[in-house]
């Protein structure tokens, strides 16, 4: 960054990154919940021919978009410390990945 360049807020980008990770983690949670509980599985049948997958993914998408909306409003004109946000995002992503990996889910 040069001295003449003005500081640009990174809040909107940070909000987009963290909310995407939250959405992926939510997908992991809904996947495990539907796999482990018959009652939850039944609740996730938004479109029965596709099974619980439709509920799991719809809920995750809603969580992602709501988180994005909230964070984007909160961090609209601000500059955030990106280090902790990046770490939190990648931890959430990896946890989400693990929670959708069938051998791991079966072992829970």
């Amino acid at each position: 960054m040069t001295l003449t360049e003005t500081q640009v807020p990174n809040g909107p980008a940070a909000a987009a990154i963290l909310s995407a990770a939250i959405g992926c983690f939510a997908l992991g949670l809904t996947t495990v919940a539907a796999d482990k509980s018959k009652a939850v599985n039944k609740l996730m049948l938004f479109y029965p021919p596709s099974g619980a997958l439709t509920g799991e993914t719809t809920i995750a998408i809603v969580v992602w978009l709501v988180a994005w909306l909230i964070l984007a409003r909160l961090w609209r004109n601000s500059t955030r410390a990106l280090g902790p946000i990046n770490i939190a995002s990648f931890v959430l992503l990896l946890c989400g990945l693990l929670l959708t990996f069938p051998p791991f889910v079966d072992a829970l």
């Binding site: 960054m1 360049e5 500081q7 640009v8 807020p9 990174n10 909107p12 980008a13 987009a16 990154i17 909310s19 995407a20 959405g23 992926c24 997908l27 996947t31 997958l53 799991e56 993914t57 995750a60 998408i61 992602w64 990106l82 992503l93 989400g96 990945l97 959708t100």
Partner: peptide
């Protein structure tokens, strides 16, 4: 069936950041 959604959510976020946050990308 699940992991494909990870890619799609991530790419949507990337599209937003790369289109709307170009200046921030250069700085950080």
């Amino acid at each position: 069936e699940h992991i494909a959604f990870f890619a799609t959510i991530a790419v949507t976020m990337l599209a937003f950041v790369l289109i709307r946050q170009r200046a921030a990308l250069r700085q950080y």
